[in-house]
Design a protein around this nucleic acid. Structure first.
Length: 319
DNA sequence: AATTGTAACAACCGCCGACCT
DNA sequence: TAGGTCGGCGGTTGTTACAAT
């Protein structure tokens, strides 16, 4: 223990970054990659700690960051994922391409949380504030949601790790390649063709998907199933079935959420009033009573939230 | 024009887990 | 295996811009 603070060195600058500092950091990373963050400031000629440099890069300077107003789709995704995952911003960010966890967190704290509060919805539980929490039905639903969240959290972490690893590998191989070609490390900004950069992205995606398939097919899924079967957390048979259905589904949770408004996929789609894929088993409309109740209430819950949100856009005078 | 309040967001802080020696 | 280093995460604070008084 007793890790030394990263900014213990006297004289290191804090506070807002100047354009000159940004340029130094950008130039250095473009040329060398970030490498060790701790060593970077010295090499780049910056009087900042490595942590500060990393944050500046990941939250602001990275070329693959989308800035500006959040779309309605993004807002909905954040609310849905927050209900499922809580304040796990990095996990939520993996479902919002080009948005950083910091940006999502800030947006939640300054916009969405207040909006839900004003609508009478508890931003922590995502339930109407006047609703009695002692209700047996809702306790059951909360437990189910919590179990789903546990599984989804684990999956998200693995997914995020795979993406990171894939990116690192891709960056590394690209840098190796560029040592010979002397190009920028950023495909989108380099002189190489757009097709090569999109290929890069596709490769990353394919690699990640392949690896995740591997995880699904092998150890992680088995471990998870084992956990479900042996865990003292006592997953209900219904939930185990639901989770198995999720795990074998071709469409991942991400797609269910992100595509629910434009792919026609009825899963978890409040607008469509469709049934949850997790509730009706193989889609045959089966499932036991508990699952159906959960599904129905969950559907109503999302309807309530999203109808309210949709009916009160951020530029509404109400806000 | 000056002051105060508030919203938005950038940045920092402290903790934690993974990894390395 | 203990201890140190590093990067990542989430909570919080600081700063800036703008509106209201």
């Amino acid at each position: 223990m007793g890790r030394s603070p990263c900014c213990e060195k006297v004289g290191l600058k804090k506070g807002p970054w100047t354009p000159e500092e940004d340029q130094k950091l950008l130039s250095y990373i473009e040329e060398h990659g970030h490498g060790s963050w701790r060593a970077l400031p010295t090499k780049a000629g910056l009087e900042r700690c490595g942590k500060s440099c990393r944050l500046r890069w990941t939250n602001y300077l990275r070329p693959d960051i989308k800035r500006g107003k959040f779309t309605l789709q993004e807002e909905q995704t954040i609310i849905q994922l927050h209900a499922l995952l809580g304040n796990r911003w990095s996990s939520i960010a993996t479902h919002l391409p080009k948005r950083t966890d910091n940006e999502i967190k800030n947006y939640w704290n300054t916009h969405l949380k207040k909006r839900l509060t004003k609508l009478g919805i508890d931003p922590v539980t995502h339930k109407p504030k006047n609703e009695t929490l002692s209700s047996e039905n809702h306790s059951k639903n909360a437990a189910n949601l919590s179990h789903m969240a546990q599984w989804e959290s684990a999956r998200l972490e693995a997914e995020a790790r795979l993406v990171r690893e894939s990116k690192l590998r891709s960056q590394y191989s690209l840098q190796q390649h560029q040592l010979g070609s002397n190009n920028s490390v950023f495909p989108s900004q380099s002189s190489s063709s757009a097709s090569s950069s999109s290929n890069q992205v596709l490769n990353i995606k394919e690699e990640g998907e392949k690896e995740w398939k591997g995880y699904e097919d092998s150890t992680h899924l088995l471990e998870f199933k084992d956990l479900m079967e042996n865990s003292s957390m006592a997953f209900s048979p219904t939930l185990q079935h639901e989770m198995t259905m999720i795990s074998v589904a071709e469409e991942g949770f991400t797609n269910l959420l992100l595509d629910n408004s434009n792919s026609g996929d009825p899963s978890l789609s409040p607008e469509s009033g469709g049934e949850c894929i997790t509730c009706d088993g193989s889609g045959s409309g089966g499932g036991n009573g508990g699952g159906s109740d959960f599904c129905e209430d969950n559907k109503n819950y999302w309807n309530n939230i999203l109808n309210l949100v949709n009916s009160t856009p951020s530029d509404s005078p109400m806000f």
